[in-house]
Write a protein that binds this DNA or RNA. Structure first.
Lengths: 225, 225
DNA sequence: CTTGACACAGAACAGGCGTTCGAGTATTAT
DNA sequence: ATAATACTCGAACGCCTGTTCTGTGTCAAG
């Protein structure tokens, strides 16, 4: 019968193989064998799988370790282990102090209490740094475009540069908040992320404790109650 | 001769095996075989390697896929390949139509046009699904707690259940927006995520095209300009 | 001393696996 | 039409690999 011949690039079959390798790797934590690929992609001969694998290797989509079992892998930018594990230190909530990790805390946290972020999503400057995560509780951070349940990832720091989004503890107001930080003539301007809301000003005399600089916000959208 | 008996925990040999697996994995991009481990660790019998591997598995240091070649991997730190690659299909912007991927688009995107998300961050239900990502352009989604530059990850779907956050195309208003979806008696209620903002109502007669359901929002906080 | 747990060696087995070869069919170009 | 190219199949070969079984020596407790 008629099967439209693809002039160039990846055909449907190439694509299916690529997808299968990716999903198999995710599920089994190791690459599939040639025969497993054939089974899933309805290819009855191992030589045909090998045939396509050769093409995918030539086109740079996969890498193969010849003669080695399951020696096939995708050649996308981030192969393996390219994630960053960030400790979840607690919650950030208006009216509560911000828990900042001590040096001893780093490295001693369980996977359940940590957040994994792909390197590719990290702002370049922050890679490999000592970051920590906080879960936002309550809706008091809405003016920072941060909602209840969001996860904010912070870099611990005491001083901020203009434009940084920081987590601050305003002891005068007994309040925790996330704002963009600007140093002006004789005061600090804390600008909400939401442009429709007005900034608050803090005299340089007043206490303003910067706990960390926000580098990322993650929100899992489950359901609205 | 005298070989000091280790009372408990990891012995020198266990450690050497662990180290070898790690370094081999780094160098070859795939785990070593039992015989390769034995060769490096000066163990002349595969059964002895198997003997230690069993112990390391019991003590939780490694995981094994029995019967599968090179089916051994470390369990600490960075789990390998535990990420999800989501294609970045374009931008979502008020007044513009939403680009929704066709079946052919999946899998044919370059790393630069994709977003990697750790599995552990994914809502359980969405794992392995055909997701796609959009970059938010403009500040028109602020009432959805989404800012300019944010990345939203969507699951393509035409119908939504109450409480889902959806991307909709309101052809009457020639507008794209992100809202929480609620079906009411004779109309649809589109509830902004920001509780301080009022919902908009759409009669069931009016056209309302649901393009996808939002499962995650990611924001890289760089700097405020 | 005996016993048993432990560490190790060697060999053999069975199945997994990548590779290769021969042959056949469909599609496209000449 | 004819030839070249692309694709598919089935089978066989042989190495790779995890598993298992038997046996040996060490060491500490009874």
């Amino acid at each position: 019968m008629m099967m439209v011949r693809k002039s160039k690039g990846l055909g449907e079959r190439h694509q299916k193989i690529l997808d299968f390798i990716a999903s198999y790797q995710r599920e089994h934590k190791h690459p599939p064998s040639i025969r497993e690929i054939g089974e899933y992609c309805d290819i009855s001969s191992t030589s045909v799988v090998n045939y396509y694998l050769d093409q995918l290797e030539k086109s740079g989509n996969i890498e193969r370790d010849r003669k080695i079992s399951r020696g096939v892998r995708l050649t996308n930018g981030a192969p393996i282990g390219d994630m960053f594990r960030v400790p979840m230190m607690g919650v950030i909530q208006a009216g509560e102090p911000i828990p900042v990790p001590s040096n001893a805390d780093f490295g001693s946290f369980t996977p359940e209490d940590s957040v994994e972020v792909a390197m590719s999503l990290m702002p370049a400057k922050e890679k490999g740094k000592e970051l920590f995560a906080l879960k936002v509780q309550g809706e008091s951070m809405i003016d920072a475009m941060v909602n209840d349940g969001d996860i904010v990832i912070l870099k611990p720091t005491q001083d901020a540069r203009n434009g940084d989004m920081v987590a601050v503890w305003l002891s005068d107001r007994n309040e925790t908040t996330l704002k963009f930080f600007f140093k002006e003539k004789d005061k600090y301007r804390l600008q909400p992320a939401n442009p429709t809301m007005k900034p608050i000003y803090i005299d340089k005399g007043e206490s303003l404790e910067i706990k960390g600089k926000v580098v990322m916000v993650i929100r899992k959208v489950e359901r609205y109650n």
